[in-house]
């Protein structure tokens, strides 16, 4: 393999995995924008999405599209339950109890998964059985291409939905000013529930996309979730563009760092970058203000 091909290979896989981080980060960003909640359970929601696909696809033997759609429906319902039982009771408390509750929820999800599925890693088959193809020395895994296509499609959908539908605009209004949204007759509680449902689905889709690449385990979500956070902060919390660019940046840095600096520290690079961001440029790439009011 030539040097250029190695570079191309790493850039390709970095961007693809970065796309998954971006989806998770988008979910975190949307919830943060509309409720000010930092959802530390997003990673574990991803894990549940992967298990949902595993049950429907591998255990019940449903065809891929049906399993995929059914998993989305199930996870959407789950998102509603999550906001009803974790967010809603704590909605008027300060950020600390809410963060801790989402961490607690994450622990709960991991442990439920452990009880139900055990500690043996589960395997999910890729969307296309035929593996991939090689162009110019770079191997293009079809699952990675699926990830890229789905991520791109979801971000386009996100754009169209938020900018060109009435529901999307109502959700934006809710995120920007809840009191004013109420005064305009927008049912704010419902909009927040939608936001949680949508964000949960985004996380779950991320999980379904990586399920064939990683093994599905109850712990798979925690690193994914933390990296999505890193992406979110690098991109400026609550910023849609930021989530996309932050996610891809994290994916690339991880892939390139592993390839050219030290493979064993693959997981460390995103966090080192984030540390630098937090201490040197806390407002993120696009400059949303970080410092919180007392």
């Amino acid at each position: 393999m030539s040097g250029l091909a190695i570079l191309g290979q790493n850039v390709f896989s970095g961007i693809a995995i970065g796309g998954v981080y971006a989806l998770l980060a988008l979910g975190i960003a949307l919830i943060y924008r509309s409720t000010n909640v930092t959802n530390f359970a997003q990673g574990d929601i991803t894990m549940l999405g992967a298990y949902a696909l595993y049950i429907l696809l591998e255990q019940l033997g449903l065809p891929y599209p049906i399993a995929f759609l059914l998993a989305i429906v199930v996870m959407g319902i789950f998102g509603w339950l999550f906001q009803r039982f974790v967010y809603y009771p704590l909605r008027n408390r300060s950020f600390l109890p809410v963060i801790i509750a989402t961490i607690g929820a994450g622990i709960l999800f991991q442990n439920v998964a452990l009880v139900v599925f055990g500690s043996i890693p589960r395997k999910v088959n890729p969307v296309f059985a035929s593996g991939g193809f090689t162009v110019g020395g770079v191997y293009f895994d079809l699952q990675y291409i699926v990830i890229l296509v789905v991520t791109a499609a979801l971000f386009v959908f996100q754009y169209l939905f938020f900018e060109h539908t009435s529901l999307g605009k109502k959700m934006q209004a809710t995120a920007q000013d809840k009191t004013m949204a109420q005064l305009l007759g927008i049912p704010v509680a419902l909009m927040i529930a939608f936001t949680f449902i949508y964000s949960t689905i985004l996380g779950a889709i991320g999980g379904m996309l990586v399920a064939p690449i990683y093994f599905v385990t109850n712990r798979m979500g925690s690193t994914l979730g933390l990296k999505a956070f890193a992406a979110c902060i690098c991109g400026g919390f609550g910023d849609v563009r930021g989530a996309l660019i932050g996610g891809i940046a994290i994916g690339l840095i991880e892939a390139l760092g592993a390839a050219y600096i030290a493979p064993v520290y693959k997981d460390a690079f995103p966090f080192l970058l984030l540390l630098v961001f937090l201490l040197v440029r806390p407002q993120g790439i696009f400059g949303e203000k970080v410092s919180e009011k007392a």
Binding site: F229, A262, L279
Partner: peptide, 25 residues
């Protein structure tokens, strides 16, 4: 001094993740 609240929590998480990898490797 630089960050507070959830961002400070994130700083501690970064330190935690990186440190654990150093111990391992």
């Amino acid at each position: 001094l630089k960050v507070s609240g959830r961002y400070l929590a994130m700083v501690t998480i970064c330190v935690q993740v990186v440190f654990a990898l150093v111990l391992m490797n």
